[in-house]
Measured scan of single mutants.
Amino acid sequence: MKVIFLQDVKGKGKKGEIKNVPDGYARNFLFKKGLAVEATPANLKELE
């Protein structure tokens, strides 16, 4: 799953980066803790 990092995550990505991460990791950790959002067209547009 492609995500946009909202904060630096040690060993995974830095704020503003767009990266592919495993689905479970994204849903169960990154999204729940507010560290990233899914890289949807709407979210990508907001990032610009």
Results as ranks from 00 to 15, higher is better:
27 R>S: 07
29 F>V: 13
13 G>Q: 02
30 L>Q: 01
13 G>T: 02
45 K>Y: 11
33 K>E: 12
19 K>V: 11
9 V>T: 03
24 G>P: 10
41 P>V: 14
43 N>T: 10
18 I>E: 03
28 N>I: 08
9 V>A: 02
21 V>H: 00
6 L>F: 03
19 K>I: 11
36 A>R: 01
11 G>D: 08
3 V>K: 00
48 E>H: 14
40 T>S: 10
11 G>F: 07
31 F>D: 02
35 L>P: 01
8 D>S: 09
17 E>G: 02
19 K>L: 13
8 D>F: 08
36 A>Y: 01
30 L>E: 01
45 K>P: 06
2 K>F: 15
18 I>G: 01
43 N>W: 08
2 K>Q: 14
44 L>N: 06
4 I>Q: 04
28 N>S: 10
21 V>T: 02
4 I>R: 04
34 G>D: 06
21 V>N: 00
14 K>A: 10
46 E>Y: 14
45 K>V: 09
18 I>M: 04
13 G>P: 00
46 E>W: 15
47 L>S: 07
8 D>R: 04
24 G>N: 13
26 A>L: 08
27 R>P: 03
36 A>G: 05
10 K>D: 12
29 F>A: 05
22 P>G: 08
39 A>Y: 12
5 F>Q: 00
39 A>E: 02
47 L>T: 07
32 K>Y: 08
22 P>M: 08
6 L>P: 00
3 V>W: 01
47 L>N: 08
19 K>T: 08
7 Q>H: 12
15 K>V: 08
28 N>G: 11
47 L>G: 06
14 K>Q: 11
7 Q>S: 09
48 E>A: 14
43 N>Q: 09
46 E>S: 10
26 A>N: 03
20 N>K: 10
10 K>G: 09
47 L>V: 10
11 G>N: 08
37 V>A: 05
44 L>F: 05
26 A>S: 03
8 D>H: 09
12 K>F: 15
41 P>I: 13
9 V>W: 05
21 V>F: 07
20 N>L: 15
12 K>R: 15
26 A>I: 08
6 L>N: 02
23 D>Q: 13
11 G>M: 06
16 G>Y: 09
2 K>T: 14
28 N>H: 11
38 E>W: 07
45 K>I: 11
16 G>F: 09
26 A>E: 08
15 K>S: 06
21 V>P: 00
16 G>R: 03
3 V>R: 00
46 E>H: 09
36 A>N: 01
17 E>F: 03
27 R>D: 04
7 Q>R: 14
46 E>F: 12
23 D>S: 15
29 F>W: 11
28 N>L: 11
42 A>F: 10
19 K>M: 12
14 K>E: 07
4 I>G: 01
26 A>R: 02
35 L>M: 07
32 K>M: 12
40 T>Q: 04
23 D>F: 14
48 E>S: 13
32 K>V: 14
27 R>Q: 10
19 K>S: 07
34 G>F: 10
9 V>E: 01
26 A>M: 06
9 V>P: 00
22 P>H: 10
15 K>Y: 05
12 K>A: 15
1 M>S: 04
11 G>P: 03
9 V>R: 01
46 E>K: 11
39 A>N: 03
22 P>W: 08
36 A>P: 01
29 F>D: 07
36 A>V: 06
38 E>P: 13
38 E>R: 10
43 N>I: 11
11 G>R: 05
45 K>T: 09
10 K>Q: 12
15 K>L: 06
6 L>V: 08
41 P>A: 14
38 E>V: 07
8 D>M: 05
12 K>I: 15
4 I>P: 00
10 K>Y: 14
25 Y>L: 08
17 E>Q: 12
2 K>M: 15
41 P>R: 09
7 Q>D: 08
17 E>V: 04
17 E>A: 06
33 K>W: 15
2 K>I: 14
14 K>V: 11
9 V>F: 03
31 F>P: 01
